[in-house]
């Protein structure tokens, strides 16, 4: 796209890559990320070290108060545990639901493939909040699911679904399902059918064939799907707010109210950064362990 790049075509590093001024294309986007992502994050770090005795109106004194972290984590350890627990269960159940679905679309749908793909996304064209509201109606005490489970005596007669952890996790699972299905589908769709047939020809049972051929080949999709589900689920607070009670509140609820209601900026910043750090560390360990680098 610029003359020097043409001359440099011969010094390609990887096929199709060239040296030159091509990196300039990166500049506008990078500036955006630096100004609106990196800078606020660094600023958030400083905010988190303000002296907690200040207030939003009177201003805060910078005292490098690292104690904020210990205090915040001690005070909200149950929220951290609950957030990661809910997000973990959500990710696991999403995987169990999305894998057969993605597999069916990739291998079994024939000429209905495009139709099924559209059907995967279609429910999510409606607003996230409206979908969660309709779960509120479905899981309500007079709703069909509660009535059905009470009739089967799975739930006691005064048992509830709404305002329990089950409702919150069910909402999370529903809302993040396509984030698991689509990457899994993308990976499974690339799997060469002949490899699976070869496994069968070599007398592997369908299950062994799946475990040794299909599953490993779908790992990139599985890794990015679990990340795309776990990360937003761990920071979500809408499902807990609309489907649960303060007993089910997650870390996101606390950060939200610390920022927007109490305006306790040091606490909110401390919690935000702790959440971000924990998530990033988990993500990096997970990517290392699963040996998939192509995500980044």
């Amino acid at each position: 796209m610029n003359p020097s790049a043409t001359e440099a075509v011969n010094v390609t590093d990887k096929p199709g890559q060239r040296r030159g001024k091509g990196w300039l294309l990166l500049v506008p986007g990078m500036l955006w990320l630096l100004m609106f992502f990196l800078f606020p994050t660094v600023q958030l770090f400083f905010t988190s070290l303000y002296d907690p005795s200040g207030s939003f109106e009177q201003g805060y004194a910078m005292t490098w108060h690292f104690q904020n972290y210990a205090d915040a984590i001690k005070e909200t350890s149950d929220l951290f545990v609950r957030s990661f627990l809910y997000a973990g269960i959500t990710t696991l159940v999403c995987l169990l639901l999305a894998y057969p679905l993605a597999y069916a679309i990739a291998f079994k749908s024939g000429r209905w493939k495009n139709v099924m793909l559209v059907l995967v996304i279609a429910p999510f064209f409606t607003s996230f909040l409206l979908r969660t509201l309709s779960w509120q109606a479905i899981l309500a005490d007079q709703g069909p699911v509660t009535g059905f489970l009470r009739a089967l005596a799975i739930l006691p007669d005064d048992g509830r679904l709404l305002a329990t952890p089950i409702a919150v996790v069910a909402g999370l699972i529903y809302n993040f399902l396509p984030f698991m299905t689509l990457p899994l589908y993308a990976s499974l769709d690339k799997v060469d059918h002949r490899l699976i047939e070869a496994a069968g020809d070599l007398y592997s049972s369908p299950f062994t064939g799946f475990r040794k051929v299909t599953l490993p080949l779908s790992m990139p999709g599985l890794v990015s799907g679990t990340l795309l589900t776990f990360i937003p689920a761990s920071g979500d607070y809408i499902n807990a707010e609309l489907l649960g009670t303060p007993r089910e509140y997650m870390l996101g609820n606390r950060i939200q109210s610390a920022f927007l209601v109490e305006q306790n900026y040091p606490l909110a910043a401390t919690l935000s950064l702790s959440l971000m750090l924990l998530v990033v560390v988990m993500v990096i360990l997970y990517i290392r362990r699963s040996g998939t680098e192509e995500l980044v």
């Binding site: 600023q43 910043a269 935000s272």
Partner: peptide
């Protein structure tokens, strides 16, 4: 992408 939305929004 690895940052929960609540963190990005608050910062």
């Amino acid at each position: 992408m690895a940052t929960p939305e609540v963190v990005m929004g608050s910062s």
